[in-house]
Structures are given as C-alpha cells and as structure tokens.
C-alpha cells in the first residue's frame, strides 16, 4: 500500500497541530495582539505545570495504563514544600525531598500495578485519595511562601530575556521545555522508551518478545510520579504557595491533553510531542475565552469535552481503517 504517501499513524498528530494552528489563527484574526510574543509566553508560563504533568500522564497512557493521582500529588508536593519552607528549611532541600517523595510514591503505585496485577485505575485512584488526604494532614489551609531566598533567586535570576521588550522565559518554562525534549528523545530513541510502546500496544506480545513488562511498567509509573512531583514544584514556584485544594481534577486535564494530542487511550499509539500541542490547545481555548470577555468560563469545559470527543471519533475511525487494511 504505497498509495498513501502520508502515513495514517501521523494523522491524529497532524490533526492536533491543525487544531492548534486553527485556534491560534482564529485568535489572531479576531483580536489585536493575540499573536504577540507576550501572549504566547504567557500561555507557556500559565500551562508549564500542566505540561510537565501531561508528560507523565502521556507516558502512562502510552504504556496502556492510567494515572489518576497527578493532581493530588501536585497538591501534596506544594503543601509539603510550603510547610517545610515555612519551618525554615531551605526551599531547595524541600523541593528535593518532595521530588523524592513523589518518585517513591509513583514507584509504589507501579509495584502494586505491575507485580500484583491490580488495575491501574484502582491503584492510582487509591493513590489519589492517599496523596490528597496526606496533604490535608500536613496543612488544612493554603500556606504562602513569602520572601523565600531560594524561590526569589529562581524568580529573579533564572530567566532568559526574549526579544528586547523586557519579555522573559521563566525558569519553569525552561524546565518544561527541557523535560519535553528529554521525554521526546527518551520515548523515540531509547530502548526503554520503545519498550513502553511495545507494552502499551500488546502486553502479551511484549512478554513473548522477552521484554521485561513488569519492570517497564514500574519504570513508567515511577517516572510519572517524578513528573507529577516536578509539576508540583513548578506549580509552587508559579503560585508561591501550597494549598491542599490545588489542582482538583487536574489529572483529567492531563489526560484530555494527551487525547487531544493524538494519543490513543488504549495505549501504544501517540507521540510525546503531541502532549505539548494538547496542552497548548487547552491553554489557547482559555486565553481565547478570556480575550472574548463575554463568553462564560464554563464553555471551556464544554469545548474541551467536544474536542476530546472529536479526537476519540477520529482515533476510532483510524483504528477501524487500519484493521481493515491489515485483514
């Protein structure tokens, strides 16, 4: 079948980019300054933490699982850092501790899922309850991080000037972009990354090929825990506070970003870079509604739901088409 020059597996990703460009063009046509660098950098800055979380979620989905604990882990790390920083601990050390805690948490989930064959949905659901409840144990209300030297250094020094109008690329934006590059290379070029695809596509076949399925799964959930904790750190720097109520339902945004990014929720199909465009589309819809001014915010949810639906239908169609061709 050489007739199709454009491989069908690129279609969802191409559709994501097309949707992104379409929404962006819609904004530029309707509003002055929508296309400015300032708006784009703002978009990146406001969604960096979601992007980092979406990288972890994307990896888990590619392996055929699901992670519902993302939002709760972000809240937990935020509260932990804020509490420790409030007690006089160095914020950098607090962040390292939170990162270790999140990674360990992810690893535990992975062991339960891979070694004991428990459904990922239930284990990460339990993980969500656990992390959310633990963050309430640390503090029942929001804790601000005021005048913390480490965070001030991060805010004021670790940034790159973009253009000559005083615009900057902040630390968490760079963190996100760097992590994205690493994740893309990891998933495309390393053995471990390709194993994730194999496990997600067909676990049985992967086992028969001699791929260490359990170890791959534990790695995936460990990395997802790491990403969630890192997203928590980014969110803490972004808001300069920790709140046990933060990011309720964020896991669904991360999953939606992956779906809009052209990832098949059954696993094995999709590209890490897709999550980037998925996150940007989610962010753009919000920016667009903000620019419009007279549309109510709840339309965001409805539009996101509709977009998810469109992508699901498209994926379904492609799967059916390629199945037919195989037969």
């Amino acid at each position: 079948m050489k007739r199709l020059r454009f491989p069908v597996r690129y279609v969802p990703f191409a559709a994501t980019v097309a949707v992104f460009l379409l929404v962006y063009a819609l904004g530029i046509c309707n509003f002055r300054n929508f296309g400015s660098l300032r708006v784009f950098l703002g978009l990146l800055h406001d969604n960096a933490y979601l992007g980092i979380a979406a990288i972890g979620a994307e990896m888990v989905i590619l392996s055929g699982g699901i992670d519902l604990s993302v939002g709760a882990v972000i809240a937990f790390t935020g509260v932990l850092i804020a509490k420790l920083a409030g007690c006089g601990v160095n914020a950098g050390a607090a962040m390292a501790l939170a990162l270790a805690a999140g990674t360990l948490f992810g690893a535990l989930q992975g062991v339960l899922i891979a070694r004991y064959r428990l459904p990922p949905f239930l284990v990460t659901l339990g993980g969500m309850f656990f992390a959310r409840g633990s963050s309430y144990m640390i503090s029942e209300e929001a804790i601000g991080i005021l005048n913390n030297p480490v965070i001030m250094v991060i805010e004021d020094r670790l940034q790159i000037a973009v253009g000559n109008r005083g615009l900057t690329l902040e630390f968490i934006d760079m963190l996100y972009l760097a992590l994205l590059v690493i994740a893309v290379v990891f998933m495309q070029k390393t053995t471990a990354g390709r194993r994730v695809y194999a496990v997600g596509e067909n676990e049985q076949a992967a086992t028969l090929m001699g791929i260490p399925v359990a170890r791959t799964k534990v790695m995936v959930y460990t990395l997802a825990g790491f990403c969630s904790a890192l997203a928590g750190i980014a969110f803490t720097i972004y808001l300069k506070s920790g709140n046990p109520l933060n990011c309720i339902g964020l896991e669904m945004d991360a999953i939606a970003a992956a779906v809009i990014g052209g990832t098949l929720l059954t696993g094995g199909v999709g590209y890490m870079i897709g999550s980037f465009f998925g996150v940007l589309v989610l962010g753009l819809i919000q920016v667009l509604i903000m620019f419009q001014g007279n549309i109510n915010s709840w339309w965001t949810r409805i539009i996101v739901g509709a977009l998810v639906l469109v992508f699901i239908f498209m994926q379904n169609l492609i799967t059916q088409l390629s199945n037919r061709r195989r037969i």
Binding site: I255, W298, I302, G305, V308, I312, F313
Partner: peptide, 18 residues
Amino acid sequence: CGIQPMVATLVLMVAGRG
C-alpha cells in the same frame, strides 16, 4: 460506536460540569 467505555465516558465527565 464501540468506543472504549472509560474514554467514552471521559467526554461527559469533562463536559458535564460545564
């Protein structure tokens, strides 16, 4: 439509509160 249940109900979960 034969869509995986978890994915199909995700649509209404996201859009429902809206």
